[in-house]
Computed example of a mutant assay.
Amino acid sequence: MFDPTAFDNLKVVLEGAVYDFDLGGEIDIVDRKDLFDFAHYERKYQIQYRLKGTQGASVRLELKADAGHFLAERNGFVRGNRAGAVIAFTYLGDESLLSSRNALEEFWGQGTSWEWLTISSSHGETRVEGILTFFRVITEEMVDDVIEMVAHSIESLLK
């Protein structure tokens, strides 16, 4: 029988939490991807959502685990890795998203890292991405924190 990894279990929890908010009428899910990179032995799950009925900024939640995370779980091979996965939230929008930059950074608080990208294109409008990462590996013991992170990301879209 298939023994799910920490990544699989966290993915189920994240997906369920996001779909609960969608079914509750608070958000619209815009996109979803479940990817496996065979060259790097890396799994990624992405789900993108925005506030219900809006066309403004959206959030892409990404759960990622690499070979180190899987080896730490299966063989106890740690060397800088822990069983689990990493989570990132990417805020996607137009240039108006930059006016929310300070509020978003303050809203998420300490223990986070932000990268802000402005993407200019001759094919369309300028796009902005704010990538939020955390300084820790997410483990199965943090399931309640993960659900809270999803709720927090939706609340942040109101800022």
Rank of each mutant, 00 (worst) to 15 (best):
D34H: 02
G56C: 03
L71W: 08
E95T: 14
I147R: 15
G130I: 01
G84A: 03
D145A: 03
I47D: 01
S100L: 13
W108N: 05
V13R: 10
V86D: 05
R50L: 01
V150T: 02
K11H: 07
T118S: 11
L61F: 11
E62F: 06
G56F: 04
E106T: 14
L10A: 00
R101Y: 05
R127C: 07
F89V: 00
H123V: 08
I154V: 14
E129M: 15
R136T: 05
F134T: 03
K64S: 05
L97R: 07
V18I: 12
A39C: 05
Q55W: 09
Q110D: 15
R50N: 01
V59D: 01
T139V: 11
M149D: 08
R136Y: 11
R82V: 11
H152I: 05
E26H: 12
L61N: 03
V146W: 00
V30W: 12
S113W: 07
L97K: 11
A57I: 04
E15R: 13
L23Q: 12
F89W: 04
F77M: 09
V146I: 06
V137L: 02
F70N: 02
R127E: 15
N102F: 12
T133G: 11
S113D: 10
L14E: 06
E62I: 10
R43P: 00
E15Q: 13
T112Q: 10
D37R: 13
E26R: 13
G111K: 06
E141Y: 04
A88G: 12
A57C: 07
K33E: 09
V137P: 01
V12T: 08
G124C: 09
T54W: 05
Y19D: 03
G109N: 05
